[in-house]
Amino acid sequence: MEDNLKIERYSTDDLLEKLRDKNIFRTADVEFAILEPSGSLNVLPKKENQPLTPKIIGMTLALEKEPQTVIMDGKVLIEPLEPLKP
């Protein structure tokens, strides 16, 4: 890996800095990393270091409703507020 870094003119310190930018402080926590032509580093953490998501724990979430406009051009729109009446 160090030879590949030299070819790309990328030091170990550069690599570690880019990993820290991604909140990865140990190279052992990285499953796969790729240095893009733009110079940015994309990192896939190992499974045990990836964030926990509802899908992983089998949890389903309620669908989010799209926001409704209730004021337009300084005027209150009554129609979107109708379902909220007691």
Score class of each variant (00 low, 15 high):
M1I: 10
E2T: 10
L5S: 02
L5P: 00
L5D: 07
K6N: 15
I7C: 05
Y10M: 14
T12P: 00
T12H: 11
D13H: 02
L16M: 13
L19R: 03
F25K: 04
F25V: 06
F25M: 10
F25A: 02
R26N: 14
D29K: 06
V30T: 00
E31C: 00
F32L: 14
L35T: 07
L35V: 05
L35D: 03
E36T: 13
E36D: 08
P37E: 09
S38F: 04
G39D: 13
N42I: 13
L44C: 01
P45S: 09
P45Y: 01
P45H: 03
K46C: 06
K47A: 15
N49T: 03
N49P: 01
N49L: 11
P51G: 06
L52P: 02
L52T: 12
T53R: 12
K55C: 03
I56T: 15
I56Y: 02
I57M: 04
L61S: 05
L61N: 03
L63R: 09
E64I: 07
K65Y: 05
K65C: 05
P67M: 07
V70P: 02
V70W: 10
I71A: 08
D73Q: 12
D73T: 11
D73N: 12
G74D: 06
G74N: 07
L77W: 05
L77K: 11
L77H: 05
I78M: 14
I78Q: 11
E79A: 11
E79V: 05
P80L: 01
P80E: 02
L81R: 06
L81F: 04
E82Y: 11
P83M: 07
P83A: 09
L84E: 07
L84T: 09
